[in-house]
Design a protein around this nucleic acid. Structure first.
Length: 119
DNA sequence: CATTTGACATCTT
DNA sequence: TAAGATGCCAAAT
């Protein structure tokens, strides 16, 4: 893949791979997109999305498993929770998603599989 | 062109 | 455990 591809495009590509009923953290998406340590960019890339886009932006949460509130106070975070619950993703009383159970594990290696991701 | 801001993560008090 | 500081980068101002 060309390195010159737009960062946002790469980010959207990774987010699009998150399967239904699972979530990924901003940092995780950044790492998978080849942008280690640039978790902030993920949110910006997602906010730039069009409403018509099919990218599952709602499957991205912060490192605590919580839905990040918008600065401008837009109610999108509520829609995000609704969409996740619609996919059977559960929240605990602290409004946190148990990442142990719902975190997306790309290319879940079968036992004995010698797959390694990006060096 | 310099600053500010923003859907974060991680380290350091 | 909680609160503050820092790194990072693209867009908006």
């Amino acid at each position: 893949m060309p390195e010159s591809a737009d960062l946002y495009e790469r980010i959207h590509s990774v987010v699009s791979r998150i399967p239904r009923g699972r979530v990924a953290t901003y940092g995780q998406v950044a790492r998978l997109a080849g942008l280690p340590g640039q978790a902030r960019l993920i949110g910006y890339a997602l906010s730039a999305l069009d409403d018509r886009s099919r990218v599952p932006w709602h499957r991205v949460v912060n490192a605590q498993g919580r839905i990040s509130a918008r600065r401008d106070g837009s109610p999108m975070s509520i829609l995000q929770r609704l969409r996740l619950e619609r996919e059977q993703v559960r929240f605990d009383v602290r409004r946190c998603i148990p990442l142990d159970l719902f975190r997306w594990r790309p290319a879940q290696g079968a036992p004995g599989c010698t797959f390694r991701r990006q060096t």
